[in-house]
Each structure stands twice: as C-alpha cells, then as structure tokens.
C-alpha cells in the first residue's frame, strides 16, 4: 500500500514506520531528510517549504508506481513530506519502504528520495541569520531539461549507438577530415593504376599520377588479332561462275578443229543447249534430240526446219520427217502432259 502525505505537522518516524510494517516483511528501510543549521558558512534559522499539492501528490504516486515496477517484492511505501516552517534538526521528509528482504527496500528507498528531489514540485526557502532568504534548487532537479514526470522519466534519452562523439578541437577535426580525404584519394589512385596499367608496371617512374592509360590488346574469344574481318561467301550469283566454264577450253579439250568447234557451239547456242559433254558425238546427239523435240512441239514451223537444214551440215539425214497419225496423237498427249 502507498501512504502519501504533505503535512504542516511534525513528522513522526515511528508512526510512518508503523504504516509500512507487515508480518510478512523482514525489512523496513527508512530515509529521514532533516534540516541543516548551516549553508556555506551562513547560519540557517529555519526552512520554509511549500508545494503545489495536487501535483506533488500525483508525482509521489508515480514514484511509488515506478518503484513497484522495479522491485515487485515491495510491500508498502510511505512518503511523508512536511510543509511550512521547519526548524533545524527536524525531519522535512520521511520515506519508509517495507519488503520481505532487505535488498529491495534499501534500493527502493534510495530510488524514492532521488526521484522525489528531482521531480516533485515542492520548494524550500532557507532563512538565514542576517542574510537574505534563498529559494533552493535541487541539483537533481530536471526542470530545465526534461519535464516533471507523471509517468516515469528516463534520466537521459539513450544515445544512438551508431553515433560517435569526438572530443577534439575544430582544427584537429579539420585535420582529421583532410587526412581522411587524402587517404581515400590515395586508395582510388591505386585502384585506378591497377585498372589501367597492366602487367604490374605501376612500379615505374609514373607512380605519382593516376592520369594514364596504357592500352593493352585483350583477345576476345578465338580471335587472332584485334582487327575485325568480314567475309562474304556467295552461294550463287555472277561472282560464282568460274571462267573455266567457257568453250575455248572445251575445244581444246575435245581436240576438234577450231572451225568445226565454232560451228558446233553456234548451233548449240541457237538451240539453247549447253556444251555438256566433251564427246562430240554425244553433243551431236543432244542437238538432234533438241531439234526433234522442237519439231514435235511446233510442227507449224516446218518450213524453218527445212531452211535450217541447209545450214545444219551435220544433220542432213535426220531431218526428212513425216508424221504418222500415231505420232501426232503421241505428241498431243505429250503436250497435254506438259501443260498440266
């Protein structure tokens, strides 16, 4: 249980201790704050206390809650504070805490008085013999930095672990930053040298600068040089016709007299058949076949054949041709096939 009181009456330690004593508790810890009779050589006549009472009681209640949070074994807490005029030697504050074992109550009572001095709105004026009275300020008072707590105040916000505090002069700090920049520059230079200058030539006289590029040929894949070569392989077209295909060579190979060879070639050209065979008899046979074919497909040009026969020295015996009905029927059949 919590016993909280602000009173102008003299505090009785016995009564307050009795409030917290319990059969189950082996420890009652008591703090008594009393008034000194001197301050910095000045004689203190008395102290005058005043409080913002509703707020002070709230703050004292939150001290109790906080203590019970930290030391759950606590049984009872009593915080009594005296107000008004307090003569020297008398108690201004009494705090008593009971718990089953002494450690909890000892720690808790210490915590309570520290927090009370820091956060409970109570003020003390020291009245001196001869000097002006002074309103005191507790060193624990957190009034300038953190607000007076109703919930438990943390003394200081925890510092972010990633932040580093450096305690040096401005010049020293500048120097360190400069050193850092130079060291980084150096590292970048070295890595540039490794990148641009191959074969560990970085040790030569040019090491002071990174502004150099030494080219190096890097083979790619299965290349044989650093030049690219484009080749076009024509599968067909005028470029692919070899000169060997022309007839002068053919005459030489067939061994015909040039006059006969020329005439044979001109007939072949006229009939639109190529010189296929080296054998002259084979070529003559091809010509005859072609003429027979032309006669069969175009009988209406018979008179040209006769005229042509005069020119065609080689084919005299082959040309006098009469068509039987069977022949005509066969040709018609052939034509129909060809048209289909």
């Amino acid at each position: 249980m919590d016993h909280l009181k602000l009173t102008p009456d003299k505090l009785s330690v016995d009564e307050i201790t009795e409030l917290v004593t319990d059969d189950r508790c082996g420890a009652v810890s008591v703090f008594i704050g009393t008034t000194r009779d001197n301050f910095e050589g000045k004689k203190v006549l008395r102290l005058e206390y005043e409080a913002y009472e509703p707020m002070a009681l709230k703050a004292m209640k939150s001290i109790c809650d906080e203590a019970r949070d930290k030391w759950p074994a606590i049984h009872s807490i009593a915080i009594y504070h005296r107000l008004g005029m307090v003569p020297c030697r008398e108690a201004s504050v009494v705090i008593a805490v009971s718990s089953p074992h002494r450690r909890d109550s000892l720690d808790a009572v210490s915590h309570c008085i520290e927090t009370l001095k820091a956060s409970v709105p109570i003020w003390k004026k020291e009245v001196y013999d001869g000097d002006e009275p002074v309103w005191k300020e507790n060193v624990e008072c957190t009034i300038d930095s953190t607000p007076i707590p109703t919930p438990a105040p943390d003394p200081a916000p925890p510092v972010d672990k990633s932040l580093v505090q450096i305690n040096v002069s401005c010049e020293e700090l500048q120097q360190r930053i400069q050193n850092f920049i130079e060291r980084k520059r150096e590292q970048v230079n070295i890595s540039n040298i490794h990148d641009f200058v191959p074969n560990n030539e970085a040790d030569n006289e040019e090491t002071e600068t990174c502004a150099r590029v030494r080219t190096q040929f890097v083979r790619r894949g299965d290349s044989k040089g650093h030049l690219k070569v484009h080749k076009v392989h024509n599968e067909w077209g005028p470029q692919t016709v070899a000169p060997a295909d022309f007839y002068p060579e053919q005459h030489n190979r067939t061994g015909l007299p040039s006059s006969i060879a020329e005439r044979v070639v001109s007939i072949e050209n006229y009939l639109n058949i190529g010189p296929v065979s080296k054998d002259i008899y084979r070529r003559l046979k091809d010509m005859e076949d072609k003429i027979a074919y032309l006669q069969s497909v175009s009988p209406e040009y018979a008179q040209f054949w006769k005229a042509a026969r005069d020119r065609d020295v080689k084919q005299e015996g082959a040309m006098d041709y009469a068509f039987s009905a069977d022949d005509i029927a066969r040709k018609i059949e052939q034509l129909e096939k060809g048209m289909m």
Partner: peptide, 10 residues
C-alpha cells in the same frame, strides 16, 4: 496553469 520554478523538495 501553474508556474513551476526549479524544485527543491526533500
């Protein structure tokens, strides 16, 4: 509204 100067209890 309360004006709270530096406290000095205890």
């Amino acid at each position: 509204i309360a004006v709270i100067p530096p406290i000095s209890g205890g």
